[in-house]
Amino acid sequence: MGNVCRTAAIALCLWSVFMHFSRLSALGVNELLYFRVISPEEIGYLFSAAPAKDFGGTFTSFYDEIFLVPADPADGCSELTDREILQGQVILVERGGCSFVQKARNVEEAGGKAVLIADNAEDNDSQYLDMVTDGSTAKPSIPALFLLGRDGMMIRRSLQRQALPWAVISIPVNVSALASFPFKQPPWTL
């Protein structure tokens, strides 16, 4: 009987998550991509991000443990510093200052595997933006994802507070396999 109740609770939790993310934006749950922060533990949550609409690539591999490195400069609008650290990692940049395409191109040129562009509205905990091309012909081929402003701020704040150069994440996370690990949403989005 215990397994039946546990399975029913998991199904109810998944339905709740589906409904929550469906209400958050015009995007359907299948149009969001998920990643999980492994370290630091204080932000060890499952986050969602919206892929760019008409540029960037898709994830062809699952990264069980990869670094999420904040960009320097934070807006990613000019050449990124510390390229050795950025090489082969996911890079967190802030919205603003230049186009989404330019940010993704700069991350790709620095050797990043993907870019998470966090909204610069730090109180945004529910509105995803459609990232579209800027009309340039040179489009980046790495995955480009839009992250809610509150999520980006909380990740950056945690890294700064603990003086860490990066977070360790798993990306992409298959939400249909949520029963295989504890599911934790960021408490500020509930």
Score class of each variant (00 low, 15 high):
50 A>S: 13
78 S>M: 02
176 S>R: 06
124 N>R: 12
165 P>S: 10
124 N>Q: 12
190 L>W: 13
76 G>E: 09
126 S>H: 13
144 A>P: 06
35 F>S: 01
26 A>R: 15
150 R>V: 02
165 P>W: 13
116 L>N: 10
131 M>R: 04
71 A>P: 03
186 P>C: 01
90 V>D: 01
17 V>S: 00
21 F>K: 03
49 A>S: 14
101 V>N: 07
55 F>V: 00
84 E>A: 15
29 V>F: 15
181 F>M: 04
68 L>V: 13
140 P>H: 05
154 M>L: 14
101 V>T: 15
112 G>M: 01
132 V>W: 05
151 D>W: 06
124 N>T: 13
111 G>T: 03
6 R>P: 00
92 L>Y: 06
179 A>N: 05
34 Y>H: 08
132 V>I: 15
173 V>S: 01
169 I>L: 01
58 T>H: 07
160 Q>L: 08
96 G>Q: 08
97 G>Q: 06
174 N>I: 04
39 S>N: 15
85 I>Y: 04
46 L>F: 08
152 G>W: 09
56 G>T: 00
110 A>D: 12
164 L>D: 12
184 K>A: 13
140 P>A: 08
50 A>N: 09
66 I>K: 00
65 E>A: 15
39 S>R: 14
62 F>E: 14
33 L>Y: 00
25 S>I: 04
52 A>W: 02
24 L>T: 07
69 V>L: 04
125 D>M: 08
88 G>P: 04
87 Q>G: 01
87 Q>C: 04
58 T>W: 03
142 I>M: 05
79 E>G: 12
128 Y>S: 05
49 A>I: 05
41 E>V: 10
63 Y>R: 06
14 L>C: 10
20 H>Y: 10
139 K>Y: 01
106 N>A: 05
144 A>S: 15
10 I>A: 09
84 E>S: 14
161 R>W: 03
172 P>L: 02
2 G>I: 11
167 A>Y: 00
106 N>Q: 12
55 F>C: 00
145 L>E: 08
104 A>E: 11
179 A>V: 05
137 T>Y: 04
49 A>R: 06
173 V>D: 01
5 C>Q: 14
154 M>C: 07
141 S>I: 12
152 G>S: 05
133 T>D: 12
93 V>D: 06
86 L>W: 00
125 D>C: 09
50 A>M: 08
136 S>Q: 10
72 D>I: 09
176 S>W: 11
24 L>P: 02
5 C>Y: 14
93 V>Q: 05
98 C>D: 06
148 L>F: 03
62 F>Y: 07
126 S>G: 04
85 I>E: 13
163 A>P: 02
165 P>N: 13
10 I>W: 11
39 S>L: 15
2 G>S: 11
174 N>D: 15
20 H>F: 10
1 M>I: 05
94 E>R: 15
98 C>Q: 11
6 R>W: 07
116 L>P: 13
89 Q>C: 04
22 S>A: 13
182 P>R: 10
29 V>M: 15
180 S>C: 02
129 L>P: 01
51 P>F: 13
149 G>V: 07
168 V>G: 02
